[in-house]
């Protein structure tokens, strides 16, 4: 465990709390892609069913991410269902899941169910944000709190990059699957980060140029 990873994980944790806060305070899941949230459930479930014990920290975090992502689906599907507009959440998820299954089958560290699911989850996580970004692109604007959620989520993956560099020098290990997918995932946030830093951080509303 190094500071980059710790802060990355804390940022991930924060992103969930920001999302819950947004849903509670506005009593609405407007602007949040149900598809992206459903993909995160798929990511966490397929990755964390590997019951290898690492540490208390690791186990608690895994339970938290599975539990909170399912709870968010419940909030979106049942409690605040009328506030979700499926007509703008139109990204075709099968175009993401299909290729990720294929990639998981081709690129893995061992051809076992657990390992294929693990690498599938890594690939899927890297693109799971696309329905959300697509929705943002379509509406052209977002509530400030939603952008804070996305920024925290993006920061989590961005912080994993220095973590991998650090681990390369201190432990001599490189996880090519995680690194490749992680770079792609962080790359997807670049446009968003640009607008976030130039607008939201300056106190303006998040609006994309027409």
């Amino acid at each position: 465990m190094n500071l980059f990873r710790l802060f990355g994980d804390l940022s991930h944790l924060a992103s969930i709390f920001i999302l819950l806060h947004k849903i509670y305070t506005t009593r609405s899941c407007r602007g949040i892609s149900f598809k992206t949230q459903a993909l995160y459930v798929a990511v966490f479930v397929s990755r964390y069913i590997d019951f290898t014990y690492i540490s208390v920290y690791n186990t608690l975090m895994k339970l938290f991410f599975i539990g909170s992502s399912c709870y968010i689906l419940y909030l979106m599907r049942i409690k605040y269902r009328p506030t979700h507009d499926p007509s703008i959440d139109t990204f075709r998820v099968e175009y993401l899941v299909g290729p990720c299954v294929l990639l998981g089958l081709i690129f893995n560290y061992q051809f076992t169910v657990i390992e294929v699911l693990w690498s599938f989850s890594i690939f899927l996580e890297s693109v799971a944000i696309l329905p959300q970004l697509f929705m943002l692109q379509r509406t052209g604007e977002a509530e400030t709190i939603t952008t804070h959620y996305l920024a925290a989520l993006g920061a989590y993956r961005a912080l994993y990059i220095p973590n991998w560099i650090y681990r390369y020098f201190t432990e001599g290990t490189v996880d090519p699957i995680a690194v490749t997918a992680g770079l792609v995932q962080t790359g997807l946030y670049l446009d968003f980060f640009y607008v976030y830093f130039t607008k939201v951080m300056q106190g303006q509303k998040f609006e994309l140029p027409a």
Binding site: R5, D9, H12, R47, D50, T52, I54, S55, N58, M61, K62, F65, Y109, W118, Y160, N163, R167, Y168, E171, G172, T173, V174, D175, P176, I177, A178
Partner: peptide, 10 residues
Amino acid sequence: VNPPKSHDEL
């Protein structure tokens, strides 16, 4: 370089 022995990252 080697990949990590276990998937210890989240």
